[in-house]
Write a protein that binds this DNA or RNA. Structure first.
Lengths: 207, 207
DNA sequence: ATTATCTTTAACTATATGGTTAAAAACAAC
DNA sequence: GTTGTTTTTAACCATATAGTTAAAGATAAT
């Protein structure tokens, strides 16, 4: 592990700045400062703000897809798989709180090309096998008639939303609730049970 | 219902622009155009972009709180209340897709005063009665030991997330899934069952 | 040592955009 | 029709910021 060179430092700084502030809110000067470099060097390596942004964006897309593939594609039985899935997504959200928020905001607020770029990267690495894998897990659990799409929506919603809406939710439920050391563990257990009893046990053997 | 005067038209236009693009992305000229007015008039009435933004923001906060109070405070039995709750939130999200996204983004990306402003408006109209009302409903349903905070998290997550993450989710699950005429009705039924079997039936009579 | 690459400095340009102004015009109220 | 308010016009200013440039200096590779 060598000391990062300037190019990598700039990318790291740009990532922080773009994720926290979006394209419009990001400042090239702030990126230079964060990277311990100067504006001239940013343009020497990356030419324009847009190009730097797309490099960051692609890396984020790719990383996200990698994580998802890893999580959803594992070989376990249903219940351990589900626990693993929930734990990993929750960990991802808490360790990088800006990321999901950024994806959601930029994909709707910015131009219409972003969703397409995302889809291209998605298809490059997993040609539609995604929902299929979930369906296979559901079958293993005896809930083969439950739609994989709804399953995915439920899991992502329950795991991601509290993390991204936290500044808002803290005002309604009190900061202490989120600050609680066991919050993540409790939430993990809660989501697991919700899925287990609300989907699997409920629909087992359905036609 | 008279024809709106310019001031109201400007506020309406500003609301659209700010919700869609955030403070940084919003353009005063775009607001003027949308309102069928000119920049000079914007400043004649509202002085600065910030002031106009805070007027829009306060109205949005207030509207949101009003909706939530109305929904969560109704007098029904648990199951009709739950159905009503889910239906109303889903309707709100689909009819104003930019709103939740905007709240989440701006409350984290912009300055730290916004969450406080939100909390002040919140407390003005409902001094902590919020979680209490949910707890009362849970008691009615025989699930008095289930934490109201978790209930609120689950409901909001399941109802709101798919709406705000839609541009992203469409790429994973296909546009058709969301475009389906019955998507909302299916989702409503799905969330209802998830809560009913995953929380209420599961925890009934718990210590 | 020479060379090529990386990095800094510091000035600069161009542009977008928020904000201002003053006068005129349109409109409404009385 | 006089008066006060609202709205337009069209110019303008100030500032922030993306982007550029050229020269010099530092660093690494050969």
């Amino acid at each position: 592990m060598t000391i990062k060179n300037a190019k990598d430092q700039i990318i790291a700084a740009a990532t922080k700045e773009f994720l926290a502030s979006g394209f419009d809110g990001a400042r090239m000067q702030a990126i230079a400062d964060k990277a311990g470099a100067n504006k001239a060097l940013l343009h020497y390596y990356f030419d324009t703000k847009e190009k730097l942004y797309y490099i960051v964006l692609k890396a984020q897309f790719a990383g996200m897809i990698g994580t998802m593939l890893q999580i959803f594609g594992s070989d376990e039985e249903f219940e351990p798989w589900l626990r693993h899935l929930i734990k990993t997504i929750l960990k991802e959200i808490t360790s990088r709180p800006h990321f999901s928020r950024f994806m959601i905001w930029e994909l709707s607020a910015r131009n219409k090309q972003l969703p397409r770029l995302f889809k291209e990267l998605l298809e490059e690495r997993m040609q539609g096998i995604f929902l299929g894998k979930i369906q296979a897990k559901l079958t293993k659990a005896g809930a083969e008639n439950y739609p994989a799409e709804q399953f995915l929506l439920n899991i992502l919603s329950l795991c991601i939303y509290p993390g991204i809406a936290r500044p808002l939710l803290e005002q309604v439920m009190g900061k202490e609730f989120f600050a609680n050391k066991d919050f993540i563990a409790q939430r993990e257990e809660e989501i697991f049970k919700l899925i287990k009893y609300g989907i699997i046990e409920r629909t087992r053997g359905d036609q």
